[in-house]
Amino acid sequence: MKVLVCISNVPDTTTKVRFIDDNRKLDTTGIQWVINPWDELSLTRALELKDVASNGIEKVTVAHVGSVAAEPVIRKALAIGADDAIRVNAEASDAYFVASQLAEVIKQNPYDIIMCGIESSDHNGSTVGGMLAELLGIPSVSAVSSLSIENGTFVLTREIDGGKENVQVPAPFVAVVQKGIAKEPRIAAMRGIMMARTKPIAVVEPAAIEAYTEVMGYEMPKPRAACKFVDAENAGQLIALLQNEAKVL
């Protein structure tokens, strides 16, 4: 059985974003790139499943659509424990473009479990996983907070509005994963970092796909009004302010 984890590289989550070119492009100066947090958790869970021999997972591959600039992040995924990697050599123009490139890769070389993070912390689209499943014509389960293999059956927990459901789907399928899938992201050990240097990254040229959407520009949120302080001794006054001034109570 083979597992594919789709990874995206995103600015470190503490980055103060700035834009250039008339607010059309992210200013990448000084940005630290990391594996998208949900993708990192997906990878961790995939490796945990592989660690249990009876699950029968022979390989965990990571796939990324992006330029050579993302290779350090891909190497990090290999250092954490992925066996190999595929990079589609193209600028990720939109979610449909990315999903279509991944679908082409998977059609060439099928996987049993495909894992995608529920969103990327840069575009916040929540779209690639579902699109990929539809392009491949296979089931998808979204908002997955647990994934296990029980006697060869895939058991997933998904979050619904106001609860959880335990579901089963046949492979191949796409699991769109969220928090809870793994406790903490796995950290690369020195041995993993050494081994990652020789693990293969296959570079694939992109298929001709036209994006569905295009970002015309970015805007920053309007700054909030300055904070109005209420003295701690008279904390109760806050309630009156919320009721009469803000009118939210």
Binding site: D94, A95, Y96, A99, I118, N124, G125, S126, T127, V128, G129, G130, M131, A133, E134, L135, S140, V141, S142, A143, R158, E159, I160, D161, V176, Y212, T213
Partner: peptide, 24 residues
Amino acid sequence: SNNNTGKALAPRLSVRLKAGIGSG
């Protein structure tokens, strides 16, 4: 809706209808 159900369905629908998504 941009809730878990909407997030699960919108991307599949996007491919099916060849329609771009504005999410959230």
